[in-house]
Design a protein around this nucleic acid. Structure first.
Lengths: 343, 343
DNA sequence: TTGTAAGCGTTATCAG
DNA sequence: CTGATAACGCTTACAA
């Protein structure tokens, strides 16, 4: 009976004069189907406004039409950008985005992820750094037979399972830029231990100095945690130094904004007294004054690509354009950098 | 057979020597169950690590274990805060959060929401402003029989379906504060037309002036759209005025940050030459220099409460503490406000 | 190329 | 209080 509630596959089958299975084949775009049969069924579907029940399909197919986003990230803007990118790729599909923040550090993290994946039977899942850097999440997905993509600051996995940026390279360039302007005492606010991105960015920083034959005292490197507060503390430590650094590279925008904050609080002027470069190119970088020179991290593109990788089986062969896996970051020149002014 | 794959309700039933239905009753915390039977079943569940299959439950129950978040919001930080609050409430439940951005303005918006709700059969859904202000989404949820909560800047619905803040009141207080410091030419950067929050905040602004018997030229009100860019344009318009306003209230932090940006770009000093008050108390307010006086909008608490309202049936009567519906905002005093200095 | 029968794992009905 | 049986709506064998 169709009169009651929403039409089901049975209604379609009956009205089209075919079997349920044939309707099912139409829904699932089975290739072995007579064109006229398909047309007939599609006509009925359109006419009565039939929409397949996702719960029933999920039960039979053993997977949901959901793409998961697993993260444990201190940066809100980054997570939002990732969501935006993924949703862009998923637009006009039947897939939905399910968000799952987790507690790295928790001893049950891996079990939590496993429970989440097993329970929801996701179609695919995307991991953000730093969780994505944990090799065990990849193992877990392979064991569970679930599609996954990891985002990272360096290549961690095969192209199918990875979207990466070249953090070390672009930071090296950024620091070289500082050097070319005449800066010699350059401070680094490093990211948290255990983050691959933090390591890569630091590596780029050190490579640039090494290539220029410059050896800096260890004191010019301060530890941060990618948060504003830790950035503030690190910047204060650096600015207390004597002689003071003439430029600071902060491993993300949040800490770069904190550096600007710390400098202005002391009555310093940026970029006259201090040049600052950040990393991420999140909104705050261009919103603060002076607008901040920073590395543009193409997160939205990476996230979109990641989602497309996850959906590649679904879209079928016709759309089998290989999604890129490496997304070059670029330095965005704004107003927080100038040649050093000795005073 | 349990050897293959994950244990099912049948395995539990067999091992416990009861029927499937009895196990089902245990899972669903049915009150009419013999204590010893329950204990026996629970023991088996724990022993073999049985986890109910959500897809099958969804099919039988006609609803998923998902809470939806529907929004069309220009402010990333706000959406993240909402997610954080909701997820906090959902922690340690079997519910997951599914995020659905929509395109207000699209002629198919309501149909899109309907399709989403019907397809996913959510357990409950939360609407953010400005979509939440549309009475038709509430009608839709009632028609579909789906739990919903709306967030807004004024009371739009019954307590069960609403979390609201008192924007007009707190803005009135904020502007009175400006007046008490001696400001007389106060500019307003208004929010977008059609947003209830924009209207409420403007109302508070106008009430404060009216109560003080001050009549301001229409030119001191500039239109914004809650984005940085529109805030910048509006601030420039205001700062081009002669005489210039000595203080500006911006209807959200993003536009307040833009106001600061515009002022500093002109070489003005804040708060000496211009006092600024924002609204939201998002991260940027405290991160920029000088730290910005703003209205703290308790979004995280509101979102947590909203999710709890959605889950109230699930938690059962024992936890039936009535969640609040009104969340007072408060003015946070920072460094962007000072008495006017005539120069 | 299409159809038939048997699940997928759970809950509702209604009897005991 | 508990259990047998029929849904829930779709897909996967396996035939035809």
């Amino acid at each position: 009976m169709q009169s009651q509630g929403k039409p089901t596959i049975n209604d379609v089958a009956r009205l089209a004069g075919v079997s349920k299975k044939t309707v099912s084949r139409v829904i699932n775009r089975s290739p072995l189907l007579n064109g006229s049969t398909r047309a007939k069924v599609e006509a009925v579907i359109a006419e009565i406004g039939y929409v397949p029940n996702v719960q029933a399909r999920a039960l039979a197919l053993r997977h949901n039409f959901l793409i998961g986003l697993v993260h444990d990230n201190p940066n809100a803007q980054m997570v939002m950008n990732v969501q935006a990118g993924m949703l862009e790729a998923m637009r006009d599909t039947e897939f939905e985005l399910i968000v799952r923040p987790i507690d790295r550090g928790s001893s049950t993290m891996l079990q939590d992820i496993r429970a989440f994946l097993e329970r929801q039977r996701l179609y695919g899942v995307m991991f953000l750094p730093p969780v994505s850097e944990n090799e065990m999440v990849a193992d877990l997905c392979r064991e569970l037979g679930i599609r996954y993509v990891r985002m990272g600051s360096a290549t961690l996995d095969s192209a199918k399972h990875m979207v990466a940026s070249n953090d070390a390279d672009v930071v090296r360039d950024a620091v070289k830029h500082l050097l070319s302007l005449g800066h010699r005492r350059i401070g680094l606010i490093a990211g948290p231990h255990g983050f691959r991105s933090a390591r890569e960015r630091r590596k780029g920083f050190e490579e640039a100095l090494a290539e220029a034959g410059i050896k800096l005292p260890r004191s010019l490197i301060a530890d941060g945690n990618y948060t504003f507060e830790t950035g503030l503390a690190a910047a204060d430590r650096l600015l207390d130094l004597s002689p003071r650094p003439t430029a600071i590279f902060a491993s993300n925008d949040e800490m770069a904004a904190a550096t600007l904050h710390a400098a202005m609080r002391r009555g310093m002027t940026v970029p006259e007294n201090l040049s600052i470069i950040g990393f991420d190119d999140t909104a705050i970088a261009s919103h603060i004054w002076p607008p901040m020179t920073t590395v543009h991290w193409p997160i939205i593109s990476m996230a979109r690509s990641a989602a497309l990788k996850l959906l590649t089986d679904f879209f079928g062969d016709d759309q089998a354009v290989e999604e890129p896996s490496l997304f070059p970051s670029t330095l965005i020149h704004r107003a927080s950098v100038a040649p050093p002014r000795e005073d």
